[in-house]
Design a protein around this nucleic acid. Structure first.
Length: 135
DNA sequence: TTTCTAACA
DNA sequence: TGTTAGTA
């Protein structure tokens, strides 16, 4: 379990994360505002991201590309119970399970929004919904 | 030079 | 989201 410690060890500043994730600093900070990620801070209030944070951002990125909005991602992603080791071990153990679940939940969520006919969110993902259910 | 927050186009 | 301003 020394692995989880490393994965959650805050190492890189936003500049490196930008290159690693192909996201803009603006986006990364924006996602933080919406609590999709909770990077650590240096004494100088500088953000420090861990490998886990980067993976999380990549997940967020893929969801965004699928047309899911922030609210939707919040539903699919696990609540941010980050930091420390207890939460770390728990989340690390079910990491793979969580990903499979995310796919299922994603479809489920997309289907729900499609049926709900909520103008706001639905319109943003209809294109993607079609690729999921058009068959 | 890099990053941060806040705010406006 | 992009981008800019003024800092730390």
């Amino acid at each position: 379990m020394a692995d989880e410690i490393r994965r959650n060890m805050a190492l890189f500043p936003i500049g490196i994360v930008m290159k690693l994730t192909d996201l803009t600093a603006r986006q990364i900070r924006y996602y933080e505002q919406h609590e999709l990620i909770v990077p650590a801070r240096t004494a100088g209030n500088q953000r420090l991201f861990s490998f886990n944070d980067v993976e999380r951002l990549l997940e967020i990125k893929s969801l965004i590309e699928k047309g899911v909005n922030i609210a939707g991602i919040k539903q699919v992603m696990n609540p941010v119970s980050n930091d420390s080791e207890e939460a770390t071990m728990v989340s690390a153990k079910s990491e793979e399970t969580r990903r499979e679940l995310s796919e299922q939940q994603l479809r489920r969520m997309l289907k729900q929004q499609l049926l709900e006919k909520k103008p706001g969110q639905t319109s943003m993902i209809q294109g993607q919904l079609q690729s999921y259910y058009k068959r």
